[in-house]
Structures are given as structure tokens and as C-alpha cells.
């Protein structure tokens, strides 16, 4: 079992009597990419601000690198790179000046600036005032700032917000490389299941301030699996036929629904139906949306 990087116990944050985060027990291990998932307002950003000491918890403890955040904030933050909510920047300064201001506080060599600019592919734009940057470029600059101090822990709040598809791909690859190449642990938040699925190896789902689900991404994928839907002629007959052959499915509004299956199984299923003389109008995979999965998870919790 590898060492724990972030551990919170009974974390609580009240805003005017309403709990934005309640009884949160996080456990993030070294080298992990931990995906923090939840709809807007679920408490992701509040949790991240708590972890960075930007706001004080109403109750509970936070330990990062095994140290208490309240007592050793400076030592902890020295090893943490972060990007909270929308990208932070000084609009009147150029990208280099923005990074230089941070570099002076972190006390890292000047060469680090061109290194991080290169990592986020901002080279060539570094001498323009940042207020003229597109949202995607500001986002990259924010990630560059987070990387500047060679952090051991990277906390990125919605890092792909406002990026175009190729930018999203690039940042995603960058995040995935972090644990392998630099041994960095990453906490990344998103409101998109598909986003987290492609990056993280562990996922925690927040709903109304509480952790409703925390597991490996593989297990999540099984739980949140989509279904195969077939529209065929004479669906009742088709269903009883394939059920005899070991497939389990249900009939919904004239559509045959099966749990998610691999390509070979789908091919076989279609083949037997065709051979039996059924016309196949449509074969589609329907993936559960995050909202549906949420409802399922949240519903599951309330039944427990």
C-alpha cells in the first residue's frame, strides 16, 4: 500500500448554516490521478479551497504529505501546485511576467519559466499581455503556474474548462504523464464523467457536499455501464429466442435492451437474430449520462 498524500477526516464547511461540504473523508495515495466528480455546486471547489488553506474548515482535519495543514501550511504549499476555478492571472502583465511574479515567491531557477511555457505549449505567446489571451491560453498559463515550483501534488480544478477539443486532449495527456514521468500525484476535478474517465484511476463523486461514491475507475465503469439497444422486427419473439441462448435482456417500448457487452458478443447476437429471420433496424449503444448515474448513486445511498 503506497503512502497517503491527502487525507481528510470529517471535513465540514458551513456557509450561513448550509453545509457546502459535509463529513468528507478523502484518501488520496501517491502517484494516483484522483478524479473529483460532481455537478456544479456539489462542493468540489470548496473542498479544493479547503485543501489549499484558502478557507478555514468549520470542523475536521486535513493532512497533506502526512502533515497537518493548520500547522505546516507553508511546508505543504511549497510542494503543491494548484489551479482553482477559473484561471488566475494578472491581465496587465505578459505571460513571462506572470510566471516571474510567482517564480520569485517560489524561488526556483529562471530557466523553469521557459520549461513550463514549453510544457503547456505557450512558447511564442509569452511576451503578450495576458488580458489579450483566449480562455484556453489563460488556462494553459494557469497550468504552467501550477507546474512552476516542481510540485509533488497537483490540484487542478476543472483544468479543461474553456479549452477546444485539441487543447483538452493535450492537457489530458499532460495530466496522465504527470505520475509516470515525475511521480506527481494529481487531484483533478470535473463535472464531466467522460472527462474523469479518460484521466483518472480513482474517482470520488460529490453530491450536495457529501461523498456519495469513491472507487477505482474500472469499478465505476462497470457500475455506470451503458446498455445495448436493438430495434428488430417481432421483438417479443426475438427476446424469448435470445434468452434461450443465454442472453439476458428486457423489452422496453419495442426495443430490446441488454447490459453492456463486448464487440464479439454483439456480433454474435446480431448474427443469430439475422439467421432467425429478424430484420434489424438499429443497433445502438446507449451510455448512461452522469446525471442518470448520479440519480442511481444518490438513490442507492438513500436506500442503504
Amino acid at each position: 500500500m503506497s503512502e497517503t498524500i491527502i487525507e481528510t477526516k470529517g471535513l465540514l464547511k458551513n456557509y450561513k448554516g448550509r453545509a457546502a461540504v459535509k463529513d468528507l473523508n478523502l484518501n488520496i495515495r501517491k502517484g494516483e490521478i484522483y478524479g473529483f466528480l460532481g455537478p456544479n455546486g456539489a462542493g468540489k471547489t470548496t473542498t479544493i479551497r479547503l485543501l489549499l488553506g484558502l478557507i478555514a474548515p468549520s470542523a475536521g482535519t486535513i493532512e497533506i504529505f502526512g502533515k497537518d495543514l493548520r500547522h505546516e501550511k507553508m511546508n505543504i504549499l511549497r510542494k503543491v501546485g494548484s489551479l482553482v476555478e477559473s484561471p488566475s492571472y494578472y491581465g496587465h502583465l505578459t505571460a513571462i511576467q506572470n510566471l516571474e511574479a510567482i517564480r520569485r515567491i517560489l524561488n526556483v531557477p529562471k530557466s523553469r519559466i521557459s520549461e513550463v511555457l514549453d510544457i503547456v505549449s505557450l512558447t511564442g505567446e509569452e511576451k503578450r499581455p495576458v488580458k489579450g489571451f483566449s480562455l484556453g491560453m489563460k488556462q494553459r498559463l494557469g497550468i504552467a503556474s501550477a507546474l512552476l515550483g516542481n510540485p509533488e501534488l497537483l490540484i487542478l480544478d476543472e483544468p479543461t474548462n474553456g479549452l477546444d477539443p485539441s487543447g483538452i486532449q493535450e492537457i489530458r495527456d499532460l495530466i496522465k504523464r504527470m505520475p509516470q514521468e515525475h511521480g506527481i500525484t494529481v487531484l483533478v476535478s470535473s463535472h464531466l464523467l467522460s472527462e474523469i474517465e479518460l484521466m483518472a484511476n480513482t474517482v470520488g463523486i460529490l453530491h450536495q457536499g457529501s461523498m456519495v461514491y469513491q472507487d477505482s475507475i474500472t469499478n465505476l465503469q462497470q457500475r455506470a455501464a451503458g446498455e445495448m439497444r436493438l430495434v428488430v422486427s417481432e421483438p417479443e419473439m426475438a427476446l424469448s429466442f435470445v434468452e434461450n441462448r443465454g442472453y439476458t435482456g428486457v423489452l422496453q417500448n419495442g426495443t430490446l435492451c441488454f447490459t453492456r457487452m463486448n464487440d464479439t458478443t454483439v456480433a454474435q447476437l446480431v448474427k443469430v437474430l439475422v439467421e432467425k429471420g429478424h430484420a434489424i433496424y438499429r443497433v445502438e449503444e446507449r451510455r448512461q449520462s452522469l446525471e442518470e448515474f448520479f440519480l442511481q448513486v444518490v438513490g442507492g445511498v438513500s436506500h442503504d
Binding site: 488553506g53 494548484s82 482553482v84 477559473s86 484561471p87 488566475s88 494578472y90 510567482i102 515567491i105 517560489l106
Partner: peptide, 18 residues
């Protein structure tokens, strides 16, 4: 002013500074 705009405080105070 430049700290209030565009999250400067956030960025500055999540660095190792008191």
C-alpha cells in the same frame, strides 16, 4: 485591484507565503 481581478488573491495565497 489586480489581486481582486481574475483571482489574484487565490493564486497568491495558495503559494507558500504567510
Amino acid at each position: 485591484r489586480y489581486e481582486h481581478h481574475n483571482g489574484g488573491w487565490k493564486q497568491l495565497l495558495s503559494l507558500p507565503v504567510s
